[in-house]
Design a protein around this nucleic acid. Sequence first.
RNA 1: GGUGGGGUUCCCGAGUGGCCAAAGGGAUCAGACUGUAAAUCUGACGCGCAAGCUUCGGUGGUUCGAAUCCACCUCCCACCA
Length: 431
Amino acid sequence: MNANSLIEDLKARGLIAQMTHEEELAEHLAQGPVTLYCGFDPTADSLHLGHLVPLLMLKRFQDAGHRPIALVGGATGLIGDPSFKDQERQLNSEEVVQQWSECLKAQISRFITFDGEGGAILANNYDWTANVDVLSFLRDIGKHFTVNKMIAKESVKQRIEREGSGLSFTEFTYQILQSYDFQQLNSKYGCTMQIGGSDQWGNIVGGIELTRRVNGAATHALTLPLITKSDGTKFGKTEGGAVWLDAKKTSPYAFYQFWLQTPDADVYRFMKFFTFLPVSEIDAIEAADRERAGRPEAQRILAEQMTALVHGEAALQAARRITDALFSGDLSELSADDYAQLEQDGLPATQVPAELADLPLTTLFTDAGLATSGKQVKDALQRNAVMVNDQACGMEQNMNAAQLFAPEAARFGKYFLVKLGKKKHHLFYLV
RNA sequence: GGUGGGGUUCCCGAGUGGCCAAAGGGAUCAGACUGUAAAUCUGACGCGCAAGCUUCGGUGGUUCGAAUCCACCUCCCACCA
């Protein structure tokens, strides 16, 4: 893919929020492989869906022949980015941030290729920040920033103007640190472009300026739009919180289900954002869905693409097996092997406690993680929305766990499939 | 350091002595309708199967009774120094 078609493709996907001088950027990209970077701050022990778009953007550039640098913010993660946040962040300890940095590194390396020609680079800004002394920092770097400009940035505006919160000097300094990263990467690796979420525009522009002043180098920027949902709610959240890329935090099955439940109004847009399917193909899917009455294909395709991309083909198959078993028809058709497979595939599973006599279902299911409070279980019971092995349970069964989970009632002497509502499934098993 | 304003249940935000587990909205969960969609309607929404138990920044006090009054403390914000 040449430079023009890359930009054109990104545009068609709606993946560009802002660029520095489009023609110059296009020209720059056309002149040969470009080194570009995107930063990921370790704010948790895993990346989540919000990080995926920029991460995939690096891959898109790599696929187009450019060299990506994935920068882990071991230093910036210690400070906290105030951009468009309405509250001061809690500082995390150095050990924690370091450990999180390692987690991110491992995840990032699954998406971009680090070997061979044009192999990506993995960097950590801790390396060039940790040992800078205050005086050098203030004299050599700080001197290039005027507070006037820093304050005027949209990204910190609400924090400065907002009543009821403030902005610490620590976080205020963040933009300088990020700018310093760009300048350093430019020196070390000839990095000439930074990408990031549109909320990073201010920080990125700061870096461009610093790089020009210190290195005398012209650099470029491209930002990605914030992913929004048509109904105005936040993208990438489920009842359990964020959707993580770490299979231990969000199982491939849950991940697959997340995408499968994408609203129609968002699904084609999301396909363009997240998948590597050609835009023309996505348009064709959309057209076909419109022709056909009933359920669209797009969600399934999106879910398959994403699960395979993030968790691999085997995990996708597992997620599909669970989905097929739970949502298409009769549980009595499942074999003993199928049950064992469900457990292996990552369907949440819990051992049935030995003592059931005094244990209300509300407690049992809450402990298993099926619901967050007994009230929720109670509500479901009152509406007959709880199924134990296809048997609907009402409130009167609440104290009847011993009978419901008796060995005689178990499938293949071992399994109980519990359904709460239409979508929450949980496997209980006897030892 | 001074003055003024403020800290309410996940979030926003009412409440200013009993009728308050605390209005309203959002988020969330469940039901109906559907397509494991959206919209809509219904119910739940501090904890507990229940009896009941625990909340309104903290600690003490006044009162038969406090989220509401008083004292002190603490944190945040604004302005002044």
